[in-house]
Design a protein around this nucleic acid. Sequence first.
DNA 1: CTGAATCCGGCTTGATACTG
DNA 2: CAGTATCAAGCCGGATTCAG
Lengths: 120, 120
Amino acid sequence: MHVTEQCLPANEVLARVGDKWTVLIVMLLGDGPQRFSELRRRIGTISQRMLTLTLRNLERDGLATRTVTPSIPPRVDYELTPLGHSLRGPLTALGGWAVENHPAMVAARSRYDAAQRDAA
Amino acid sequence: MHVTEQCLPANEVLARVGDKWTVLIVMLLGDGPQRFSELRRRIGTISQRMLTLTLRNLERDGLATRTVTPSIPPRVDYELTPLGHSLRGPLTALGGWAVENHPAMVAARSRYDAAQRDAA
DNA sequence: CTGAATCCGGCTTGATACTG
DNA sequence: CAGTATCAAGCCGGATTCAG
């Protein structure tokens, strides 16, 4: 099996999960079901629009469920599906790599940029 | 430690690696050092511009090295650094999840889109 | 062969205002 | 409270052309 064939779905998942808010929200939902406003408050800087869009996409991809309680005021809870929970494993693995090697990447960038400046 | 703090570097790495070509190129470079034209040929559909940009970013982040052989015609080889190789582990883990669960995601999308059409 | 420079279309994100 | 609609801005990726 060629590498490229493995990479098509892998890249699609990465592109999907690599957007600005998905990882954060999946991890927050890992703590258990939560309301829209609770997620909004915990993230702090996200716009209503992006929170809605990201949650919609998670629902669409079968990673989360959306439960509406028709009360006044209305209440909507989001929860990871088993599929969504299963994503947390590989995600935390990559997260572990990130926290461990992020300093090295930042350092490499500084060196590279410094070298570029010297050349200029 | 809050989840959000873990997620900042994690998301940065994912955003970096979630672009259109990085994963594929890292995996191809996993086979060993390769020339610019060889990568171009193996990928097939990538533009010169994006191959150059992606490789530059890999070099900048310390994930790959760029070796120029000043001959005529010039020859440039790219190779993963130890840091780059260490990324392959978590990457293949997520890749495994992707190939395993990609069908489920596609199916979930179809269901969701069908439900949306019915509602309309 | 490898890569830089330019232009351009599209998608993603964000701010703002409005609704049930 | 939980959205939807609209608009503007910015970045990404692709095609093309030129250069060492």
